[in-house]
Structure formats: structure tokens, C-alpha cells
Amino acid sequence: MTVGQDAEPTDEGNPTSVSVATTASTLPRRLVELDTPAPVVELPRLNANLARAATIADAAGLSLRPHTKTHKSVAIARRQLAAGAAGLTVSKLDELAALRAADAPSYLLAYPVVTRAKATRLVDLLQSIPADLQVGVDNPAGAAALSDAAQYAGATIDVLIEIDSGLGRCGVPPAAAADLAAALLRRPGLRLSGVFTHAGHAYRARDGAELSRIAQQEADAVRYAAGQLRAMGVACPVVSVGSTPTFLTPVDRTGITEARPGNYALLDRTQVALGVANLDQCAFSVICTVVSTGPGRAVVDGGSKVFGLDQGAHGVSLLDGYGEDPERGAMLSWLSEEHGVVADPAGRFEVGDRLRFVPNHACATANLAGHLYLVDGETVVDDVPVDAPGGGR
């Protein structure tokens, strides 16, 4: 991921010297021409990550339904579908509305819908999407809101029961799946299609053995819940797991039908710390420029508004610093909003130098970016929007 130090000189009045990608004619064609901070996705690495996931899913007999929260980009979602993904996962209705343009054959909204406003909007979106749509449910109140909206619109909503496989966030315990299923079956307008879980507690794993245990726990939890539903006569065709570190960890997934990793497409320092990726597999990085130097430090033009402040997930800190340039040996030691400070006791870096940082958390960094440059080596191939930036509704 070598980054040139300076762009070649251009004529002062030449409009092609402007490094703002607004149209195809003004898109910089070389990496050194990008103004910074520049969020870049290296296409060879992205393609390799997508192919790796497809191979893992095929070998395990799983459908792949990647979570788009990692990139929130229609362009990247289309690449995932072209690489064999059977559908897409989204977190918020804004993501669903934006990712409709990817034309996936099916979508899963893996987030509780509990208010009338959201249930009504969901039904409106359902009627405008020429694709299958499933919605996660983990409580009777959410089921009631969905049922009322479905009945009012004369629609049927496919729902999946969310299972808590150990994260302790959303979802019911596996043993409680049958009780919630009974409540759902009494609600008109809802069709119970299966169960799903997210083993987010994998991000707390301290070693490979613990990660393997959590990955197996994830599969066991939904497999047990599916058995409970089938015992009461529910077919339960969908038995879904989702987490990049558990997906990339080999375990017994007999009876699991699909996986929903998200971060696998880009990867980041967190996945490296968990042992499921290497830095040279990380497809996403941010090019920054050194804007100031001082005793023992260099300051770049990317701070917390570019990288976020993640040093781990779900309350556990796994990482030192906030981003790493593996080729130049630079670490973002601390951040303010617009500045990133690199420890530089040897005075290696000068004003104008460009550093390329792999972020701690690709999902948060891409969400803050607004757009992504797709690059192949030193060539800028495209500039694509992050189609659903921000927290969303």
C-alpha cells in the first residue's frame, strides 16, 4: 500500500490539478493526486476477501448474507452479490432504503422495530422493494407493532426471532424461543421464518481458543432454538449466524443455513488483533498528510472525525493507538477532532509526507467518510458514495 509523497507539479491554471472527485472527468486517476484525508478501498484485497468468504460459505453449505453496515455502499454491495452473496443484511431502515439500489434478491433487517412510525415505514419500504424482506424480532411489543402495520397495509411480514448467543444485547435466550414463537404465531400479518443471532462477544475474545468456543456457542444457540421451533411445528427454514471473527473461525455449523459477516469485506486492525486476518489483507485505509511536526511527534490531517475513537468492541480494549501505517511504521497515538498525532521520536516524518493508516474499526471509519475511493495499486478506479452515512433511523 505504498503512497507517493507528492503529486507531480501541474500548471497553476490547469483545472485537472484540482483533487476533488465530483464527476468522472475530475476524478483523480492516481493515488498521489488524492486530497487528504482520503478513504481508500484497495480492490485486489477487497476481491480476495470476497472470494475467501464465498469459499468458506460454500464449503460449509451456507448462504452468505453480508452485513452492509461495514461499508453502507451500494457499489460494494453489488460486488458482494456478484461474488456469490445470496442477499444483504442491514441495521436501520435508512440503510434498507439506500441499499435497495443494490437489487439484492432478499434483505434482512437485523434490528428491532418497536414503534408505530418505524413499522409503518417498514411496510411502505416492503411494498416498494421487489425482493424478499425479513425482519428481526425479540419481544412481543415489536411483534405487535409489526402486526398492526402489516394488517393496516394488507401485507405479510416475514420475521426471524433474534437469539442471544452470549453477547447480552438483543435477543432472547435459546430456551425462550418457543415462547416468543407462540406469541408471534398469534399475530396476524406475521410469518415466522426462523432464527438468527450475532455473536458480538467474539470481539472480547483474548485468544484463539476463546474465539473458537464463542463461534461454537453461536452455532449451538441458534441450532437449539431452531429445534425448539420445529418441535412445535414451525418449519424454521432460516437458521442464521453473523459475526466476522466467528465466520472466519472453523467450527461445526451443521444445521446452520446462512452467515452474515460484515467486516470481512474490508477487515481492520481489530480483526488482525483477533487473529482472523493479517494487515496485508486489510482492504480499507485512510491516506493522511503530515501537517505539522514537533519534538517527538508528527501531526496528520485525520482525527476522531475521520477514524472514530474505537480501540475495541463491546467494552473491551484490544488495541494500542487508533490506526497503523504498516509500511512506514507509524501509529496514531492519540486523536483530537481534526488532528491525529503520531509518535515520531526519530523525526522521520516531514510536513507534506503522506501516511496510510489501517483503521481500528473499518465500519465506523467508513461511516464517517461519506465516500470511498476504489483503487488498484497507484490507480484510482472510482469514487463511490457511502449511501447511508450516519447513525440512521
Rank of each mutant, 00 (worst) to 15 (best):
V3S: 03
G4W: 02
Q5L: 14
A7R: 15
N14D: 15
T16E: 12
S17Y: 01
V18E: 04
V18H: 08
T22I: 11
L34K: 03
L34I: 09
D35K: 05
V41S: 05
P44Q: 08
L46F: 04
N49W: 09
A51K: 11
A54W: 03
A57W: 11
K69L: 11
K72E: 09
A77C: 14
G84V: 05
G87Q: 01
S91E: 07
E95W: 04
A104E: 10
A110D: 13
R116A: 15
A117Y: 10
Q127G: 02
S128T: 14
I129F: 07
I129R: 03
D132P: 00
A143L: 15
D148W: 02
D148Y: 02
G154L: 06
L160Y: 08
C170N: 13
G171C: 11
D179R: 07
L180T: 05
L190K: 04
L190H: 02
V195N: 07
R204M: 06
R206E: 14
R206F: 05
D207S: 11
E218W: 02
D220I: 00
D220A: 12
M232V: 08
P237A: 05
T249M: 06
V251T: 15
I256G: 01
G262H: 01
Y264P: 00
L267E: 04
R269L: 14
V272L: 09
L274K: 06
G275I: 06
L279K: 09
C282H: 05
T289R: 15
G294P: 01
P295H: 02
V300Q: 02
K305Y: 10
G308L: 06
L319P: 09
D320E: 14
D325Q: 07
P326T: 11
E327Q: 14
R328N: 08
L332V: 10
S336E: 14
E338W: 08
A346C: 00
G352N: 08
R356H: 13
F357H: 10
A362E: 04
V375F: 11
V381Y: 00
P385D: 13
D387S: 12
G390Q: 07
